[in-house]
Design a protein around this nucleic acid. Sequence first.
DNA 1: TCCGAACGGTGACAAAAGTCACGATTCATC
DNA 2: GATGAATCGTGACTTTTGTCACCGTTCGGA
Lengths: 227, 227
Amino acid sequence: MERIEIFKQAELFRSLDDETLRLLSERAIEKRLERNEILFLADDEAKGLYLIAEGAVRAFRTGHDGREQIIHIERAVATIAELPVFDDGKYPSTVAAEEPTLLYFLDKNEMRRRCFEHPQIALSAAALFARRLRGCAELVEMLTLREVSQRLARYLFEQAQETGEPDGNGAIRFKQNLTHNQLAARIGTVREVVTRSFYRLQNQRLIETRNKDVLIYDLQALAAYFD
Amino acid sequence: MERIEIFKQAELFRSLDDETLRLLSERAIEKRLERNEILFLADDEAKGLYLIAEGAVRAFRTGHDGREQIIHIERAVATIAELPVFDDGKYPSTVAAEEPTLLYFLDKNEMRRRCFEHPQIALSAAALFARRLRGCAELVEMLTLREVSQRLARYLFEQAQETGEPDGNGAIRFKQNLTHNQLAARIGTVREVVTRSFYRLQNQRLIETRNKDVLIYDLQALAAYFD
DNA sequence: TCCGAACGGTGACAAAAGTCACGATTCATC
DNA sequence: GATGAATCGTGACTTTTGTCACCGTTCGGA
């Protein structure tokens, strides 16, 4: 696929005309990451933003013990590390690849110039940031005001809505592909507690797990559990 | 003071010309809040944004038990609830006054029109959101990866930097005006644990509290404690 | 198909956080 | 200065979370 076609799919660039897109995409520098390879570290000097053309990345913070807390995940086609373009600060979190990933790097000064020429970029960025802020506020609430099994319930609820398939008698089924470690990094805990939280939800008859499948009997009941 | 002079001080409007500012400020609807009065609730239908002309507000989320977690505080002159202007969603958190507060309300549709006429607003908004996102990511890290006394240490550290005065022999002193309950809502815990965390820090010889005063012997040591 | 690494389950335990009750102190205001 | 409300200190306790060790299972390449 043409670079320009990829760029057009990113929320940040959706509103741009082909000519500008071509300019942008021609200057972009390609970069490939393997699974778990780190793109940059939190507080690194920020040189620009990245467009994710294939694959997915996670943005996270690390504690002393090395425990990770994921802030958000972005998958192709999307951008990451846009903040420094607008406030000239450092990278706000560490970013690593969730899977083999193809990225295009865009210099922040060039991006800034494009923003003045094409204010729609700033509007898109504002909308993008707005969504992120919502997610982040939600995350804060979950982390500090709910307990782990509620956070897990919420995660499963969202997965069910995104990828769930009806399973006869009103239940919903979906594949749970993350390891307990990955799950833990998302909901703010550790592996063992994830295991035990799954049991809690099973004992409450809210879910059933078989292999990598999760079966949710009643979405409403699950929502009621965490909300 | 003239409304327009106040508006000009808000980051969001700083780049606007006087004529536009006049238009905006003339349409704004005044609103006064007493201490702890609620402006709107999280998930309320968003009608527009507010400019804080005097006073300060807190944006927070509430748990079932009524416990509050503050996401951020904004004090005059600043804006709040700008998100819905850019992504048309609901209010992302509950907002209440920290002290008697004077606000000006601006309709979101009008704001949106102004954004198209004056793209600098979108750029300012992007910069503003960028700063908020940094704060929020930081908050997530603190809440989930550090323990309470570290979070308290960090809060005191920041206060020391903002309002601290040197106190002879290299120490720094400042007034701690918040109640333990308010403090708890900021650092994500409850009153009693705040009390005990203060003791921890004292026992570690990192701080000394006398009345409402906090004395920090060594800022670096305090920073090392939480970082 | 075999092997080593990654992953998941589990018990025992430690530590942190939260809850409750109650009394002492401080504060705001009359 | 008196007084009621808000705030703070504190001990005893429960719950949740995190840690550690260990073992069986699964998975992904050679």
